[in-house]
Structures are given as structure tokens and as C-alpha cells.
């Protein structure tokens, strides 16, 4: 059967999507590539000049860029495993037989964080983590912890951002992994459970293979989204205090939209894009055999 489909048919199916994405996505990207090679400041458009790769060399040697990069990756390596582990825990819990109604309610509640608008999460962070009128300090006060200066202290602000990210996306991981668990054929799972009482062995040898595609998808999506992370931090801390939560996207926004150096911002963004693509390729190569077939 394979190879019998005519080229015209293939194009008829794929064409509209390719053309629209190419027009909408590539044209601006080309423009960004153009500005990245120029001294292109929006408030000095009379002085635009070609400067070759200067913007790129500047970015690559700029400690501010690397600090932001390092901060972003610190967040990623802290948050992503947490999200996966918590998500897996929730998924396994929901996959167990037991209390039907409560399980349904919990599964429904998982949708809430994920559907909450990211910028709203940040606004909510301002309200809830405020040192004085924030409910978080009140709650930890009940168990005897002194009020914490969440947003005004560099380290705590980072923790607050990480906390929100886990809150918002661990449930998403749970849903994806739960979906993965439901694809395990029940005969196999039951047979395995009869053979060993260890949930770990069942997870490792029976369920995990079915979870790999979901985990890869999470890795790709969450890596890309963490590198793009903007809305929530922007509305909660605006990158502060100091630069404690200035992740790479906030830095690019600051350079491009507040200092108006679009050339430099484009160079930074293109480097970021390359990093994201390389990481995704790695994930796919190592985990995601499915698409390679």
C-alpha cells in the first residue's frame, strides 16, 4: 500500500498547513534575522547600520545574558523533575482502584491550574505571597513559621516563581501520564500484579514503556515553555528584585521593548531558539522512538 498515494494528494493534505505556517511564522522570523545583523534600535531608526555578527558576539560574551540563561536552566532543572515526579505520583494514585467520587473530583480539579491564565497566576502571586496581606504567610503562620518576605527577597522570589510553575504544570503532567497509564493493556498489568506485589517493578517494567511518549512530550513542551516563560513572572515580580527572577525571555523583552534595541533582542531570541531546538532534538533522539519509525 505504501507509496501509492500521489504527490498531489499529499500536497493537498499538507499544503494549507505548510503555507499558512510559512507565511505567518517564517516571514517575521526572517525579519528578526535581518534585524539581528543590524544596529537596529527603534528609537534610532535613522542610524540603522549593518554590523554583521556583532550582536551575536556581544550576546555570547555578555554576562547578563548568561546569568539569565543560567537562571532559566536552574529553574528548569528544579521545576521539571518536580513536576514529573508529582505528576507521576498523582497519576498513579488516580489510576489505583478506589474511592470513585473523590477520584473524579480530584481529576477534575487537575484541570483548574492548567486552565488558569498565566498572567492571572502572576497577579494572584502578588496577592497571595505579599509579605503583609498575603494568605501564604498567614497559612505558614498557623504552623509557627515567621512571615517570609517572598517577593522582596531574591531567593524567595525565585522560590515563589518555581512554586507557581509547579502548581500550574504538575497537574498537566499528571493528566498526560494518566492518559499513558490507561493505554497499558489491563491483561498485562493484572498479570504483572499477580506476579509481584511491588508497585515499583510494575511501574518500571510494565507501565514505563507506555509512559515514555508522554514523558518525552512533557519534556519537549515544558522545556520550550520554561525557556519562553514570561507572563507569570512579568506580572508577579517583573524580573526582580534585582535580577533574581529575570529569566531569559524577560531579559529579551526588556532589551527589545523597553530599551528598544531590537537588533540585540533578535540575536538573543534566535540563540534561544537554537538552544530550544537542539534540546528538543536530543529529547526526541533519546526517548521518542515513535516518530522515528
Amino acid at each position: 500500500m505504501k507509496g501509492k498515494v500521489r504527490r498531489r494528494t499529499i500536497f493537498a493534505f499538507l499544503g494549507p498547513a505548510i503555507v499558512s505556517l510559512a507565511v505567518i511564522g517564517i516571514a517575521p522570523l526572517l525579519f528578526a534575522a535581518y534585524t539581528s545583523l543590524h544596529n537596529y534600535n527603534l528609537t534610532k531608526l535613522r542610524k540603522v547600520k549593518f554590523i554583521g555578527l556583532d550582536n551575536f558576539t556581544f550576546v555570547l560574551t555578555d554576562p547578563v545574558f548568561w546569568d539569565a540563561m543560567q537562571r532559566t536552566f536552574s529553574l528548569l532543572v528544579i521545576v521539571l523533575p518536580l513536576q514529573l515526579l508529582i505528576g507521576l505520583g498523582i497519576a498513579l494514585l488516580l489510576h489505583q482502584p478506589g474511592i470513585g467520587l473523590l477520584k473524579t473530583l480530584t481529576r477534575l480539579s487537575l484541570v483548574v491550574p492548567m486552565a488558569t491564565t498565566y498572567s492571572v497566576v502572576g497577579l494572584l502571586g502578588q496577592v497571595m505571597f505579599n509579605i503583609k496581606y498575603g494568605v501564604v504567610n498567614q497559612l505558614i503562620g498557623f504552623i509557627g513559621i515567621e512571615p517570609v518576605n517572598w517577593i522582596g527577597d531574591p531567593e524567595n522570589a525565585f522560590i515563589a516563581v518555581a512554586f507557581w510553575d509547579v502548581w500550574q504544570w504538575a497537574p498537566f503532567c499528571a493528566l498526560v501520564l494518566l492518559a499513558g497509564l490507561t493505554t497499558v493493556p489491563s491483561e498485562i498489568e493484572e498479570a504483572a500484579r499477580l506476579e509481584t506485589p511491588s508497585w515499583w517493578i510494575v511501574l518500571r517494567h510494565v507501565q514505563l514503556p507506555y509512559l515514555i511518549p508522554g514523558i518525552t512530550a512533557i519534556l519537549i513542551l515544558r522545556t520550550a515553555d520554561t525557556l519562553k516563560l514570561f507572563d507569570m513572572v512579568f506580572t508577579m515580580t517583573r524580573g526582580g528584585p534585582g535580577s533574581a527572577t529575570e529569566f531569559v525571555s524577560l531579559m529579551i523583552q526588556r532589551i527589545g521593548f523597553r530599551a528598544f534595541d531590537q537588533g540585540l533582542a533578535s540575536a538573543q531570541a534566535l540563540i534561544l531558539l537554537v538552544v530550544t531546538i537542539v534540546l528538543s532534538q536530543l529529547y526526541i533522539r533519546y526517548f521518542y522512538k515513535e516518530v522515528q519509525q
Binding site: K2, G3, V5, R7, T9, I10, F13, L14, A17, I18, L21, G25, A27, P28, L29, F31, A32, T35, L42, I220, L221, A224, L227, K228, F230, S249, I252, Q253, G256, F257, Q262, A265, S266, A269, L270, L272, L273, T276, I277, S280, Q281, I284, V291, Q292
Partner: peptide
């Protein structure tokens, strides 16, 4: 369903669009 050359790359290109930071595209757009 169909077999054609560059399928894998095309799939990846589609997915890549999801990774572009909106900050890059916003101003040109």
C-alpha cells in the same frame, strides 16, 4: 498515513513553531 521524503523533518518543523518565543515575532509582526 503517507510516506514521503523529509516527513520526519517536516513534522519537526511543525513542532518547532511552538518553540519560537513570541518576543521574537511580536515586533516584526
Amino acid at each position: 498515513r503517507f510516506e514521503f521524503r523529509g516527513k520526519k523533518d517536516l513534522w519537526f518543523w511543525f513542532i518547532t513553531n511552538r518553540m519560537v518565543s513570541p518576543i521574537v515575532l511580536a515586533l516584526p509582526f
